[in-house]
Nucleic acid binder design. Structure first.
Lengths: 207, 207, 207, 207
DNA sequence: GATGAATGAGTTTTCATTCAT
DNA sequence: GATGAATGAAAACTCATTCAT
């Protein structure tokens, strides 16, 4: 940590930057990228538009920065969760729980994030996809290795390829989270996230 | 059917409409909604722009019509599949297979469709969501009833609420299809779609 | 001539185009390229700005079109004058007179034209220069050949290279025309344009 | 000279000012007035932009100052050359030579200068023209007087008004210099600048 | 006195929509 | 009824200028 070495000016700049990104996040997730103007973003962040352009060279840059920053945060949290835990089941439990936490604490960015990874991204050129895709793939590979290890150690039945199992657990957790996102009241995210896991493990675990 | 009662004029109009929607679909899925102009759509459909506006009152209307029409098509195909089949397992097999067929035969519209159902839709105002949400919900309820029936008839273990199981099978099939969509070569959609089902059923079915 | 074959629509378009170019010419020569906005040009031409962009794909295109069109007109007039005339002296007389006529009838474009050929053109990229430069060079070569021929036929003394003489007569006529342009009252363009020519010929012609 | 009386502070300021003007000159002649920003100028001169504004009240002021300063330098050099020399021919020779020297040593400012005196100056409001126009006029009058004197002293034939002859020699030297500027290789400025003069004098001088 | 971050007016350009022919 | 020319509102982006530190 060298946060101490940041001058007052630098700390201020960082704060401003965060305020701009926060305003952009709000607007993008409220109204979408194309329906949010740079002027609106600047106004919401309480800066002049010129100041916004001092920090981000154009609208696309602002968007990419925003997405990548959030994506990094998510990825780090998820990967950390996957590393912690005594055995395979514990690691997967940690994963599902961490994902739930991240998701619920970042609702506004989530739709934006999935628009980028799943939706018809408005942004055809984007080298952005690449970066995020890599992170997703890395996560899936890590999960796949956990299943692989579980299968080798005879804790799991090999009901499918380990990569397919990774895909399965990833999509199951997403589905439950979206379900919760759309109707938190009627579709609560399982208080015991293991429910999600169990759907898989019931068929998987060797008793 | 009262197709017989349509005059030549009316049949022509219907054809024109389809051509416009087809052109719009192509462009929207190639370049996204905001990067496709009404002029481009009209040109690709080989109509004057004024004619386009005779059929759709504005760009949003064109978009909504397009999405809803496709969504209806999908929904009908899926619901039909869910109705056919002797027992619960067969119905679910039909569902997974039908979904695969629909998906692969309509690749261009799929991203657009998921942008609408999952992504940060660019179009917040749209009451569009509502219509589609209802269809999705109906499908999920139908699947849930199939699980419910299976559980009641002691064919399935009750490893989770039936709605949750419906959510699970829906998201699993989506996940495998997206995986295939992104890299058809390295992640082929299972030749035997039952693989997807098995991931669930292995833990579910009572032997 | 196939002007007859132009439809009413086409003729209208041509007229509109001319009106836009005329408005642009006025503004550019009044206030310069960078101080004239597309909105101003559109307004002065009595069109909406969108219409202006239907005719010219951007501001630079409008500018280049304007300059090249005028430059072509000048070049054609000058070259024609150089071709007409019995002998060398007559050709040169025609040249000086034609230049005077063109200049005086197109005062507003002249400064613009010289800005492009002489001044620090604002337009660094411009492949525009190239086109015009070629025309100037062609004119100079033609004049040079006239001097060459005059020298060979012993009508002129060889007081300098023929290209230098061409340069000389070109610059002399420009100088007198600019002098007139800046103060038409006190520096009238010689009623007898031969005065300009004489400055050269007095030393040139073999008596 | 009261340079001695300048304090260190004042001398420093003068140096800074020169550095700013030099940077502005470079940029204006490289990219034109409107394509050079105050920020760029400040950066190239290695000052803060605020400092630039301490010295020049705005961009136009900077530009005017620059042009006038250069113009003064040229004017002084030219006038000095015109004063030196035994007789009329020698004075004119000095003029042509001095002009060549000034021109070649200040290539970067020359286009800028001619843009101002000849081109469609981007800057219509500018009372700048006035100042420079006066200097040009003074030079022309001085040259005219030299011709006048030559004519009176029967050294020159009166082939035209003396002012017209001044105009002629001025434009001839410009033309040759521009020709050189555009293609130094193929159109070298006459090693013997008298060639330029001769074009005029051949017809002028009484043998 | 020097600095350079902040400002926002002003510019180019696009495109959904209208309406006269 | 079809057409597509004309419109102008709205968006991205720049940069001269100011002023608090």
């Amino acid at each position: 940590m060298q946060r101490k070495t940041l001058s007052r000016r630098e700390r201020e700049k960082l704060t401003q930057r965060q305020e701009m990104l926060a305003a952009a996040l709000e607007l993008f997730s409220e109204k979408g990228y194309h329906n949010s103007s740079m002027q609106e973003i600047a106004t919401r962040a309480e800066f002049a538009i010129g100041t916004l352009y001092k920090f981000f060279k154009n609208k696309e840059d602002l968007y990419k920065t925003l997405i990548l920053e959030q994506s990094d945060k998510f990825h780090t949290a998820i990967m950390t969760a996957l590393e912690e835990g005594e055995d395979e089941v514990e690691k997967l439990q940690n994963y599902v729980r961490a994902k739930g936490t991240v998701f619920m604490n970042n609702v506004s960015v989530i739709r934006l994030y999935f628009a980028e990874t799943r939706g018809a991204s408005f942004n055809i050129k984007a080298g952005l996809d690449g970066e995020i895709r890599k992170q997703c793939e890395q996560t899936l590979q890590t999960i796949a290795r956990i299943f692989e290890s579980g299968i080798k150690r005879r804790r799991f039945k090999k009901i499918a390829e380990s990569y397919q199992l990774a895909l399965a657990i990833d999509s199951l957790s997403n589905a439950f989270l979206f379900s919760w996102l759309e109707a938190p009241e009627t579709h609560p995210y399982p208080e015991d996230p293991d429910i999600i896991l169990n759907i898989l493990l019931k068929g998987l675990v060797i008793n």
